[in-house]
């Protein structure tokens, strides 16, 4: 084969880029190609499998052992412990799979020169990010399904409103991905990436009620404006069937997604240069 191409070499370079009628399907195929390799990298990396994937599942299993009773409790706003934690831990897992994963892995890839190298190939940036985002959505979906199944085993009914559940999760995941890319664009040193990501993630989880319910109107008001609690509330409503379409929460998530996207578009770099 190399002979064949060699003999063609001296011909003049094609002046038109090879955009064909199949460009659309080509792009889709390339995105699937990217998702496949992102998945391989993810599932083989012990750190991502443990911290991003297994930890939330472990948390829900442990919470199930601790708060396993099905009695409604005013501490959980009249829900059972697991009715409260199944949606909130699912939300937490999506946050880790999208925001945490993208912020850290993009920072590391930028620092290693992988992004610079990639940017020198013909892979369109759009396709790269589409693949990465879809990969994060796949990981999130697997997590949410597993966590929902664990909850179900502890007697939590399946979501009452599937539409609202899926809409909230999808918008939340997309918004968290945008924030992940945005934050990775602001981190100049990958050594600091993990610390910065955790520094944002943990306090946010605590005040948003992912680890225990918050009974402070002030804290709730603050957390309602941040990206985590709106997803918790939307999912709690959708799982238990209270409250209809959570427009306000979805709007906050969308707003954060826009913020993340704007930062990413303005500040994202393929290399470490200042």
């Amino acid at each position: 084969m190399s002979q064949a191409t060699t003999t063609e070499r001296p011909e003049r370079p094609a002046l038109t880029p090879p955009i064909t009628a199949a460009a659309g399907t080509g792009r889709l195929r390339l995105t699937l190609h990217q998702i496949r390799y992102e998945q391989l990298s993810f599932w083989r990396n012990p750190q991502s499998v443990f911290f991003t994937f297994a930890l939330p599942v472990m948390i829900i299993v442990i919470f199930g052992a601790v708060f396993g009773g099905n009695q409604p409790d005013s501490f959980f706003y009249g829900l059972s412990g697991m009715q409260y934690f199944t949606p909130t831990v699912a939300a937490l897992s999506v946050f880790g799979a999208c925001y945490g994963q993208l912020a850290v892995s993009l920072s590391i890839r930028r620092q290693n020169g992988i992004l610079k190298r990639l940017h020198a190939t013909p892979l369109p940036a759009w396709t790269y990010f589409a693949g990465l985002l879809a990969h994060a959505l796949v990981v999130s979906a697997v997590e949410v399904v597993l966590i929902t199944v664990v909850g179900y085993c502890y007697g939590v009914p399946l979501p009452a409103q599937w539409g609202a559940t899926i809409a909230s999760l999808t918008l939340g995941a997309a918004s968290f991905c945008a924030l992940g890319v945005g934050v990775s664009s602001l981190i100049s040193d990958s050594e600091a990436a993990s610390a910065v990501v955790q520094f944002i993630q943990f306090p946010l989880m605590f005040i948003s009620g992912n680890y225990f319910p918050i009974h402070s109107a002030l804290l709730d008001d603050v957390a309602d404006a941040l990206p985590m609690r709106p997803l918790n509330q939307a999912l709690l409503g959708a799982f238990t069937g209270h409250g209809g379409v959570p427009w306000r929460q979805l709007a906050v998530l969308l707003a954060w997604g826009v913020v993340g996207t704007l930062v990413a578009v303005r500040r994202f770099r393929w290399d470490t240069r200042r």
Binding site: M1, S2, T5, P18, L30, H33, Y37, L40, S41, R44, N45, N112, G113, I114, K116, R117, A120, T121, P122, L123
Partner: peptide, 30 residues
């Protein structure tokens, strides 16, 4: 191009890494 710093994903195999990049080009070598 081959840059000064080694920049390759650690968890893919050699063949996977090359096959992945092959997918980015219109007429890659085998």
């Amino acid at each position: 191009l081959v840059l000064q710093d080694i920049a390759v994903e650690p968890y893919l195999t050699v063949r996977e890494t090359i096959a992945r990049n092959a997918g980015y080009y219109p007429a890659p070598r085998p």
